[in-house]
Amino acid sequence: MILASAPQSLLAATAPQGFLSPTGVEIAFVLVGIATLGAAVITVTTRQLVHAALWLVVALGGLAVEYLLLTAEFIAWVQVLIYVGSVVVLLLFGLMLTRAPIGRSPDADSGNRWVALAVAVASAAALVWVVVDAFRTQWIDLDGAVQGSTEVTGSILFRHWVLPFEALSVLLLAALVGAIVLSRKNGENGENGETEAGAGTEPPTATATETARSVTPDKEQR
């Protein structure tokens, strides 16, 4: 089968390009990638919900390092700022507001686990096979000019991608309004004792606004 022969052909095809003598970038990429993948796996398997969020920080941070290794430095910093800085915080708030148990919760995984595992492994096998089969002879030339510097990104973003960018800000506004409407305490739903719970609606609204603010100013600063 193609899948079985893929590693050999990969090795054979990459040998002249120095696969067996990887560059430092490649070693770094693979090591960070393993760490990222491990953190991601722990994120989706751990029984401690708060730990999952923290391991997510590791995974997302690892991805930021990978961006850096791919010379996309602006993306890397945006990743750190938005994901690690706000999204994970948001998720932690969410966990707390829904009274997620601190410590090991035995029922973190649903009964669907084995089916999910089968589907995930199958799709992973299919994807890896196809990807490896397709790109085994392709190389990224990282030696040229830096491709993801803030300057480059800013210039193309505001030169070529202005209209989508503005459309995106409208989308963010809509998301903002939507989040407010969804989490607003409406009179019909919470009559008794809902004032306290209704207070819980405040943080999402705040965080959504914060998210919006944290995304848009970032970009508009450029």
């Binding site: 560059t23 990429f29 796996v41 669907n112 999910a116 589907v119 994807l127 085994r136 190389w139 990224i140």
Partner: peptide
Amino acid sequence: MHLAYPAVLSALLFCVGLYGVLARR
């Protein structure tokens, strides 16, 4: 750098996320 590294990493991450979507309660 070999293109397969980021591509495979991305595929694996995607499938890990897929597992999480399907398996987490």
